[in-house]
Amino acid sequence: MAVQFSEEKLNKVKEIIARYPEGKQKSALIPVLHLAQESFGGWLSAETMDYVAALLQITPIEVYEVATFYSMYNLKPVGKYLFEVCQTGPCMLNGSDNIIAYIKEKLGIEAGETTADGMFTLKTVECLGACGYAPMMQLGKFYKEHLTRERVDQIIAECRAQAGN
């Protein structure tokens, strides 16, 4: 599959570039990498990064440097559903460790692993700015807060159901 944005996404890229003064299109790199990650399977392959470099007329190494710096870019394929569970202080005070252990047990994977069916990846992350609603995790674009074992069961079931459709 050749890496190529759709017409609509290319327009989006143009719109992003237009946010900056003339000649500063490198500023579009982080938003465009987000767009690329969403569009090309939830992760950034070298091919995808080279494509973005060409699009923004910068060198590939400039893209690699940035993509490897920020924690939201996945440099390896991930499951269809990425559970990013916060483990920092305030969440820990509210039992995030137990939630992480429960998810591991439930999915049979360790942090950083993906289930055999390619459905779920578990990632432990640092504070996501939802400390008052702890424990919590990010799932796709949104946050799932006030996690309990039941809530985790429910989320997993919802994902499975959604994938089944």
């Binding site: 070298a46 060198t59 590939p60 190494i61 400039e62 690699y64 440097e65 490897t68 710096f69 920020y70 924690s71």
Partner: peptide
């Protein structure tokens, strides 16, 4: 005229490299 290596990753894991 073209830089092909740089600093990859972050923090303690930072390294000099070419990525690919």
């Amino acid at each position: 005229n073209k830089r092909e290596h740089g600093v990859l990753n972050r923090g303690e894991a930072s390294e000099i490299g070419t990525y690919i």
